[in-house]
Nucleic acid binder design. Structure first.
Lengths: 335, 335
DNA sequence: CTGAAAGCGCTTACAG
DNA sequence: CTGAAAGCGCTTACAG
């Protein structure tokens, strides 16, 4: 690699001090510097194709203009859509984002956060994995700016941006009930994550409220790993009950995708034989026939708000803000 | 934010020099340092919860253990799948990845690359956008390690990992011909990108080889922006020709998704009325009914190879390697 | 209007 | 076995 040009090179060429070059290129002390000299410095910088060494600058200023993003899995459309929104908002403010996928694994999450902190990120946006409350608490104690997104821990008083999952699930199930579905199943991830719990609670509450007795066999939990086979098994269980379910609420797009593959394979008629609602949106849910009724999360708003809040916390005061956003039930032809 | 603990803090507490602490924590000079002292240093580091300031280290060592990834759009499943594979391979080697989406825009690409270079990334993996040959050439001249992925410039002698797009398109069209489709259209992006050109050439060659005369009206080009409306219009044109086409090859999953939405909306029967093949894979193509025949790119292998090659170029010699990989035509029920 | 100097938190060749 | 010192490429309070 060629040697990079530094402030020193410019200073030598122009015949001034390094300090002066720094002032000029950073537009500090404007007006208080000889115009000709300033111009010459700028010209020379351009001519030598000078690029700031952000590492050196960061060491001195204690700012990296980098934020760390921990998602569940960047290849999941939910994560990557959020990542894109966060990227845009960050870029707009001259921040770059480094990312990592936790795979819902607390150890991986810890490793990512540690690495990001070593790299002196200015702040973090985290879709917290299960069992990472202690990691979040640590950040809190250290006074490191961060915002949780999508998931949070109710026992910790931290900033977060999340869906009102209880309400969203409640409304989805209520919609099914109004459409006269009687035996409504929930396929959820097996997890202690608060947001997934809330979805279950919303589901349960809606059924209770409408005096539908919930059967244990309707509520299914899928492990994060090996979910595809597990969803298939679960689907066949739900549909081979003595009284098969007539509607399913999937609590994540990933679960729905696997479920819909099963449905296609076995030629199950939607919505006649089975109604389906999923959390999240994706091209996959659009292309399924009939198009799926789904709970739309306000991703744009979530990503933007989270990023703006984080940057505010970084640049001004580190204040706590907790935002619950409403989902929107987009009714299409699967219910 | 709390003050971070530095080598100095440890040194003071233990009563040794900063240098010694550095040696111990980096496992340098092993065996040549008093065991008790070493132990005490390590204990103290743990006790104070010391974290290396990677910025300071980088300034000195001229290595950041960070690679920059430029994709077209991280929210596109093709990009995000690659990103995930690259992330894993990078992490395995203790590298982190910072990313950015170029949106196929040369200016954005330039800004991203510049930012990444300012941040002193050790190398870059780039899905090059249109009109960025000069940017790539600059990297080459500067001796900055990089690997192009998915797209490359045949006129530049740089490292790249890409699909053999000509062959892939050729095989797809040949498959359609063998299935007795006669009027085969191509929906491509309007672009000077080499890989997209190759796809067109492969399409043309297959038809020529089988003595099918290509109509101008069969070959359609879609602008990167506003592609959805444009695909709809194109689809309706292709299907309202005096002799409507009976098969379409989409040269990207994004195009196919828009096309399939149109197909669903207008209840076009696949494959009876129209056969469809798409480049790339995605859940969306799996959930469409009937499942789509598609050209599978060896993403895992591409991402892994690109990352391994980049890291080798970073850590050893900056050698040029050009790899064309074969796609696989996965035949399903849409043809 | 400009520069000398200190310092950010590390690493490492050198000396003892 | 250990430490003093230089230096990575910047920024900035201070002095003149």
């Amino acid at each position: 690699m060629k040697k990079k040009v530094s402030l020193k090179d410019i200073a030598q060429k122009v015949g001034v001090s390094i300090a002066l070059v720094s002032y000029v290129l950073n537009n500090k002390k404007e007006g208080r510097i000889n115009k000709d000299v300033a111009l010459k410095i700028k010209d020379t910088a351009k001519q030598l194709n000078y690029k700031t060494n952000q590492i050196a600058k960061s060491l001195k200023t204690n700012k990296t203009y980098t934020i760390g993003l921990v998602v569940s899995d960047i290849s999941n459309p939910f994560s990557s859509s959020l990542a894109r929104i966060i990227e845009d908002e960050a870029n707009k403010n001259n921040y770059t984002v480094i990312f990592g996928s936790s795979d819902e694994d607390a150890n991986k999450s810890l490793k990512l956060i540690d690495t990001f902190l070593n790299k002196q990120v200015d702040g973090l946006i985290i879709a917290a994995a299960e069992n990472t409350a202690s990691q979040i608490q640590y950040l809190q104690e250290e006074g490191i700016p961060f915002v949780l997104i999508d998931r949070y821990f109710p026992e910790l008083k931290t900033s977060f941006i999340a869906l009102d999952n209880y309400k969203a699930a409640y409304e989805a199930v209520e919609h099914l009930i109004k459409k006269s579905y009687k035996r409504i199943a929930l396929i959820n991830y097996k997890s202690t994550l608060f947001n997934l719990n809330e979805r279950r609670k919303g589901y349960v509450a809606a059924l209770k409220e409408h005096n539908i007795e919930i059967k244990r066999s309707w509520v299914k939990e899928i492990c994060f790993n090996n979910s595809k086979a597990s969803v298939e098994k679960t689907m066949s269980e739900l549909l081979s009950l003595k009284e098969p379910v007539d509607a399913i609420l999937f609590s994540a797009n990933t679960l729905a995708v696997d479920g819909l593959k099963y449905i296609n394979k076995h030629n199950i008629k939607i919505p006649e034989q089975l109604a389906v609602i999923s959390f999240d949106e994706s091209d996959a849910l659009d292309l399924f026939h009939p198009q799926l009724t789904y709970i739309k999360q306000p991703l744009q708003q979530m990503g933007e708000t989270a990023t703006k809040l984080l940057l505010e916390n970084i640049e001004k005061n580190n204040k706590i803000m907790q935002v619950k956003m409403d989902g929107e039930l987009v009714v299409r032809n699967s219910t």
